[in-house]
Design a protein around this nucleic acid. Structure first.
Lengths: 333, 333
DNA sequence: CTGTTAGCGCTTTCAG
DNA sequence: CTGAAAGCGCTAACAG
């Protein structure tokens, strides 16, 4: 029912090839350009991207697979990625893995069938297996945030271990010794940040009892429960480090609910990722801030470079996180 | 390079038509099924959805156009929509209008060219013009949340006016008389909620000085600035109603920053949309809660019904919002 | 610069 | 139940 290139051809008396050239910015006589333009206008012609894709084998669509769209980091990330991509005329097909590796694997296949030109993914776990189909289909993949250990894929990330170490060192400099951690232990990022915590603690000669180490999943609920438990400890920590946004929120919630314990008076907190929440909650949190926007830009840049056929070895793009000051940390005597 | 139906045909000695039938669940001899299954396995065959779409004119993809992915309502909404859609084997192509009507119009065209089977959109403004191309292309559209006045399209929403009125009545029942509003006045939803506020006030015989009416845009910044101004008023309101999530956040931030004014001691607050934030901030807000999940489900259901060819007259699906209690409202003497 | 001819990978009549 | 053939709407050589 919609008009096709063929209708334009009939209307103008020109061949299909000429119309096609016109559409793709080739050289066409001004006179003919005019004719075609008028016909396009008159018949409301619009390119059928499906047909075009079938022959060019390019869809101008990037698949974005996130471990959970509900996690604020991903929401923000998608926003930036979409901005740049739409500027360049690319669309994005978004898939939510809901923290489920099976869904994640299915998402990759789905996108492959949809013939996306490339993918940007923030993986559920440390596992790399699910990306194999993309590899064999030779569809470029850029990993973000929770980049995998594997060097098979491009990735953009911060140096999680060092960043976490620096953050914990800030607590130590403020004379804290009893420092607990709430982290997720399922994926690369969480594990690295945990290592950074251990690094800082051992360098300072501080002990880390098991009860101070809450290693669980990336979820607000887990942050909440963990903080509750920490607050109940007879030998309560004086400071707690939360290694991602959702854990931070949960921990803050637990502290705010407590009538006895105040931050920073009785407990200091250091969180991760400065998203909208951070501006609204009390206390104003000290936060490790990842450059989400820049990470999105780099990821897009890299996937587009691959699509353009740049066949370098896989690369690792490291960005710098910075610390945002607040009033959630107390300097101990 | 990837294997095609043709390769399977060669491998099995069967015709293209038979393979196709197999793929689409038609009747094929058990013996042949077996053969094909083996060939598919062996050659790692995967359907090319692009080619399929070209002939079926169905892409099994739904376009989702949101006024801003950064607004939490949309993030949450997308999550639920995606859940159901992916269950049904549909993908979703997400477009962010960034609160810009030009971008919004471009998004619709983009999706049309991508031949989505249907669209779900939360519009930027009250304007309906941008949907015309979808209408003429006969691609079903379901409007959500900020449904338009126009009855040309299906929409799922809450009864914004009545809901807002009920909410304001709660403040009135608590003996508040000086009640201010912070709302967005650009789109249908904001305007309706404002009307509800006026309804409640006039029914109670309460006056609403211009200085109590902050009519602006849907943005945290606007909520923040507006609340700051309200707090400075010599005749300060005793309660403030914020008509969406971002405005609520901004307002809370302004109150929390103030050293003189406390909530609910000096000012009562009533917000909109119970998203993750609401669990973390102090005070615990009284909130009008929209059933985001159910709205997503209904929207999907409706768009799918249209795609299936159900040609009823356009319908309006009304959902019920409810009130979530907190401690942000003070009962006045 | 323009036209002719294939053909992308799949589904869909229509015979057999 | 299976096969042959046509064609979805477009681009890509290759001549002219």
């Amino acid at each position: 029912m919609p008009t096709t290139i063929r209708d334009i051809s009939k209307e103008t008396g020109l061949s299909l090839a000429t119309i096609s050239k016109y559409l793709n910015g080739g050289n066409v006589l001004p006179e003919n350009r005019e004719k075609i333009a008028m016909a396009v206008e008159k018949l409301h012609y619009e390119v059928n991207e499906i047909a075009r894709s079938l022959v060019t084998k390019k869809t101008r669509t990037i698949g974005v697979v996130v471990y959970s769209v509900e996690c604020a980091f991903n929401g923000s990330f998608i926003h930036y990625v979409n901005n740049i991509l739409s500027e360049k005329g690319y669309g994005l097909l978004i898939c939510d893995s809901s923290n489920d590796e099976k869904k994640e694997a299915a998402n990759i296949k789905f996108l492959l069938n949809k013939k996306v030109d490339g993918m940007i993914v923030t993986p559920v776990s440390n596992n790399t297996e699910f990306l194999k189909p993309a590899k064999t289909a030779e569809v470029p993949v850029v990993l973000v945030d929770r980049a995998l250990k594997s060097s098979e894929f491009d990735c953009v990330k911060i140096d999680n271990r060092t960043t976490a170490m620096d953050a914990v060192n800030l607590l130590i400099k403020n004379n804290h010794q009893k420092i607990a951690i709430i982290c997720s232990a399922k994926e690369y990022t969480g594990i690295e940040r945990y290592k950074g915590y251990r690094d800082a603690m051992s360098q300072a000669g501080l002990s880390v009892p098991a009860s101070y180490q809450k290693k669980g999943i990336h979820a607000m609920e887990y942050g909440y429960e963990s903080m509750k438990q920490l607050l109940k400890l007879k030998d309560r920590p004086t400071a707690v480090f939360m290694t991602n946004y959702e854990l931070t929120l949960g921990a803050v919630m637990a502290v705010n609910e407590s009538s006895e314990v105040n931050c920073p008076e009785h407990i200091s907190m250091l969180g991760f990722d400065d998203l909208i929440l951070a501006h609204v909650i009390q206390p104003r949190m000290y936060m490790v801030v990842q450059p989400v926007k820049e990470m999105g830009e780099k990821a897009v840049e890299q996937v587009l470079r691959r699509i353009a056929g740049n066949d370098d070895v896989s690369c690792e793009i490291n960005m710098n996180a910075h610390l945002k000051r607040g009033n959630s940390i107390k300097m101990l005597a």
